[in-house]
């Protein structure tokens, strides 16, 4: 038994070095070399300053911006505290939040009378979802266009150009990246703050 114990200690150390030090450091080295942008977080910069990551959602409340989904990460889009709401389907707190969220969505987009797109008032799993559905973006186009004093059709064309379809026409869901879209809008049609 003593012999097995000795092997247990040594093999743990051995594989800690191989799989715990060499493997991740090698992957880090190679990734930094061939995928430096992705490996460092797909960071977005404006005039050299970091404004976020294209993969990490952020809060937008102003009418000039497309709004993301509700977030349960920290106090909202906390990039160091990812989380869903974890509210169960029969929890009164969920019903309450949904009805408030629905009312807010309607008041922000008063001209829209149809059903609310499924992603618009539900909290995402990570709390950092950077994307919304194209249907959700379409509803918000009128508001954003009027706030930025631009033609809604021009704006919708920009949204459509930035929307991503299913990968290979098959995988995932169609979506629009809110962070990238809003950044693009600031570039094309700046507004007075």
């Amino acid at each position: 038994m003593y012999k097995e114990l000795k092997s247990a200690v040594l093999i743990t150390i051995c594989f800690t070095v191989i799989t715990g030090i060499l493997y991740p450091l090698a992957i880090t080295g190679v990734a930094q070399l061939i995928f430096p942008r992705q490996a460092n977080g797909s960071i977005l910069r404006r005039n050299g300053k970091v404004v976020g990551s294209e993969l990490i959602g952020q809060n937008f409340a102003r009418p000039e911006y497309f709004h993301p989904r509700p977030s349960a990460a920290g106090s909202g889009y906390d990039g160091a505290a990812s989380s869903g709401s974890n509210l169960g389907p029969t929890n009164p707190a969920l019903a309450d939040r949904l009805s408030k969220g629905g009312a807010q969505f309607r008041s922000e987009n008063p001209t829209y009378t149809g059903a609310i797109p499924a992603d618009a008032i539900t909290a995402s799993a990570s709390g950092l979802d950077p994307e919304i559905s194209p249907a959700n973006a379409r509803v918000q186009t009128l508001r954003v266009a009027s706030a930025r004093k631009m033609n809604p059709d021009t704006l919708q064309a920009i949204v459509d150009a930035m929307a991503e379809g299913r990968t290979l026409g098959l995988l995932g869901e169609p979506r629009v990246n809110v962070v990238k879209l809003n950044m693009k809008l600031d570039e094309l049609v700046p507004f007075q703050r």
């Binding site: 389907p89 149809g114 609310i116 499924a118 992603d119 539900t122 994307e131 919304i132």
Partner: peptide, 23 residues
């Protein structure tokens, strides 16, 4: 009851999206 679209359409997934990611 909150007015959410539950059927999938070409531009949104429908269904229970609480705790799910858009992509």
């Amino acid at each position: 009851k909150a007015g959410v679209e539950l059927s999938p359409t070409g531009e949104q997934s429908g269904g229970n999206m609480e705790g799910k990611e858009t992509r």
